[in-house]
């Protein structure tokens, strides 16, 4: 910075300034901006799916079965003559649904466990972290597969299964942050002033963990999309006729040699969205978590 700005006079002003500087630094990262644009496009598709789609994603039209890409069927038609383009557009809703469901469940669970373990220490810490380590040590995809197999296939069950495997990294992260914060002067001051441990954790420690949790979440979203697609591909995720991208690849698999577009298009969708989350995560990590490089 070239000029020394006057000290902020209010909390709001300080926050606004912080935000502006964040936006400025973020806009200098072209790949991160690209990721953000694609993610926003995904949200846009999900919201305005009925307007963007050219066909009803469930409308079966057997004469058009496996039609090649054309002016009416932009990306071709699938084995029941449904428009693949429209199905991909509607599929963005399912993808977002799973991602959001997993993130809003796994991140708070992990955060809570990590903060409690880190703050109390001792026996609680040891037990909680041992459980976390067991979950970390088990192969994720297999655990999710077994879990959905037991629970029965379905989009919500798939999200639950992914949650089951996704929370441990958050717990580790939150615990590490908590250990650094729990004995800082400001936390001790709050403690001396008579705040309960619960209040300290929720109002003073958790907010300090958010930036690293957000970074981790962004990266995780890419992984969640891939796992959900994998579950859908195996047939344990979203069930037909839902236009889930992984399940669409699975039906297209039978026609890969002669009607390659059936399986190829949804795969591109998964790839682009997951790449976007990774690019966004990369940029956010550089901005929000400067000390990550030393820790890992």
């Amino acid at each position: 910075m070239t000029e020394v700005a006057a000290a902020p006079t209010s909390m709001r002003q300080a926050r606004a300034r912080e935000w502006r500087s964040f936006v400025r630094r973020f806009s200098r990262k072209p790949l991160g901006v690209m990721g953000l644009v694609i993610v926003l496009a995904l949200v846009f598709c999900a919201i305005f799916a009925p307007m963007l789609a050219t066909h009803d994603p469930y409308a079966i039209s057997l004469p058009e079965r496996l039609a090649a890409p054309s002016a009416t069927y932009w990306l071709g038609a699938d084995e029941l003559g449904r428009d693949i383009y429209s199905r991909i557009i509607y599929g963005s809703r399912l993808t977002l649904f799973i991602v959001v469901l997993v993130v809003v469940t796994s991140a708070p669970i992990g955060l809570l466990i990590g903060v409690i373990a880190g703050n109390y220490g001792g026996m609680i810490d040891r037990v909680f972290m041992r459980v976390t380590d067991v979950f970390l040590a088990v192969p994720k995809l297999l655990l999710a597969l077994a879990f959905v197999a037991a629970l029965g296939p379905g989009i919500v069950n798939a999200a639950l299964a992914i949650t089951l495997t996704a929370w441990p990294p958050y717990a580790r992260l939150a615990r590490a942050e908590t250990l650094l914060i729990r004995n800082t002067d400001y936390v001790n001051a709050v403690r001396l002033a008579g705040a309960s441990e619960w209040r300290i954790m929720m109002l003073h420690i958790v907010p300090m963990c958010t930036s690293s949790v957000i970074v981790r979440m962004t990266f995780d979203m890419a992984g969640i999309i891939l796992t959900a697609a994998g579950l859908g591909f195996i047939g344990l995720g979203a069930q037909p006729p839902l236009p889930e991208w992984g399940a669409m690849i699975s039906t297209g698999r039978k026609f890969i040699f002669d009607q390659w577009w059936v399986a190829t298009a949804p795969g591109f969708a998964i790839f682009i969205v997951s790449l976007a989350f990774n690019l966004l995560g990369d940029a956010l990590r550089d901005l929000l978590d400067p000390h990550l490089r030393q820790r890992r």
Binding site: G246, I249, I256, A263, T264, L275, N278, D282
Partner: peptide
């Protein structure tokens, strides 16, 4: 490397087979 992180491997397998 990032592409390798982001691509659904089963789909890449299908495309490669094709």
């Amino acid at each position: 490397g990032l592409v390798g992180y982001s691509v659904p491997i089963f789909w890449l397998g299908l495309v490669a087979l094709f």
